[in-house]
């Protein structure tokens, strides 16, 4: 078993200003499935091909943005090991009781140097992906909208970039997969805890704790084009795409949820193993790194966060 330690992004908790508009967006337009609600007014969602109970938590708030992103670790021993790693790195951690989020085990919570709150947990109730485990069909019927397959990653803008990347690579055992560099300065870092091209990415910024986007996987380029159709049909504010990234090779489209949190749906990006080389993009070629076809940066894409 090659996969140990941190397995994957387990969930993202997003702040939304109008819950019913947000639920309509994520469920009817993107195809997520509502699995629970709690006394704090939070709504729990999952993509169809996820086994765990939720991968997105919508939190009622007076502002947009990301409350926290959580990673699932393989065992409880991993949880205590990473808690100790983060403490030894010099960052305070807090334990959040099991059940504070419905169906989620005890969580370790900390604020990274970037200004974002992250959590780790080992247990989450599994509800399955709607298909039997004996002779399963390839996909369930009745999935709506874009038919997002899974919550895949977040891209975050934050401060203290180098220290933050050191936390992720040294204490949390992520590996650098791709980067943008401007001379000696790393402008962007794409990090993986798996064989994915990235499980999280950070952009060097002057403002702490900002969300650039929360991203969801689709099955093909054709599905990305179909998502573009839905974005126009449903009057969803489009940001950029459909196009291809140089970074990660993903084919992509970006748009905003009804509170102004940016979403991505994408397909067919690259993969890696621990012995893969790090890919580097020069800042002088940043247009191609980000939008491979147009090579043109887009102001809203570069400058707008929540």
């Amino acid at each position: 078993m090659a996969m140990t330690g941190i397995l994957r992004p387990g969930h993202v908790q997003l702040r939304v200003m109008d819950m019913e508009e947000a639920v309509t967006h994520y469920c009817d337009n993107m195809g997520l499935i509502e699995t629970d609600r709690d006394d704090h007014g939070r709504v729990y969602l999952k993509c169809w091909d996820e086994q765990d109970k939720f991968s997105v938590v919508l939190e009622p708030s007076d502002r947009a943005g990301m409350d926290h992103m959580a990673f699932k670790v393989r065992t409880e021993q991993d949880l205590w090991r990473f808690e100790s790693n983060v403490k030894n790195f010099g960052i305070d951690t807090k334990r959040v009781a099991a059940g504070e989020l419905n169906g989620c085990g005890e969580r370790i919570r900390f604020t990274a140097p970037s200004g974002h709150t992250f959590e780790l947990y080992a247990e989450k109730e599994q509800v399955g992906n709607g298909l039997p485990t004996l002779n399963p069909a390839p996909w369930p019927e009745d999935i709506k909208g874009m038919k997002a397959i899974r919550f895949d990653h977040c891209l975050l803008y934050g401060v203290d970039h180098d220290e933050n990347i050191r936390l992720f690579t040294e204490a949390l055992e992520f590996e650098l997969t791709e980067q943008i560099v401007d001379g000696d300065v790393q402008v962007a870092a794409f990090l993986s805890c798996s064989t994915k091209a990235h499980d999280i990415a950070f952009i060097r910024s002057e403002e702490p704790g900002k969300l650039h986007h929360a991203s969801f996987l689709l099955g093909s380029w054709e599905q990305v084009l179909r998502a573009a159709d839905i974005i126009s049909m449903k009057d969803i504010p489009l940001d950029v795409g459909p196009t291809r990234h140089g970074l990660t090779r993903g084919m992509t489209i970006y748009y905003f949820d009804p509170s102004g949190n940016r979403n991505e749906v994408f397909a067919e990006d690259s993969y890696r193993y621990p012995d893969s080389p790090v890919l580097t993009w020069e800042a002088s070629n940043v247009g191609q790194a980000i939008f491979y076809h147009s090579r043109q940066l887009v102001d809203s894409f570069m400058g707008v966060t929540s």
């Binding site: 200003m17 109008d18 007076d62 502002r63 947009a64 943005g65 504010p237 905003f256 949820d257 009804p258 509170s259 102004g260 949190n261 940016r262 809203s300 400058g303 707008v304 966060t305 929540s306």
Partner: peptide, 26 residues
């Protein structure tokens, strides 16, 4: 920007006139 009241780039001050608002980020 987001066209959804979350990102704050389109801030204006109304000098006169009547209008309705939808919720916007505090």
């Amino acid at each position: 920007g987001c066209r959804s009241g979350g990102c704050g780039v389109c801030k204006v001050k109304i000098i006169s006139g009547d209008y309705q608002t939808k919720i916007m980020s505090r």
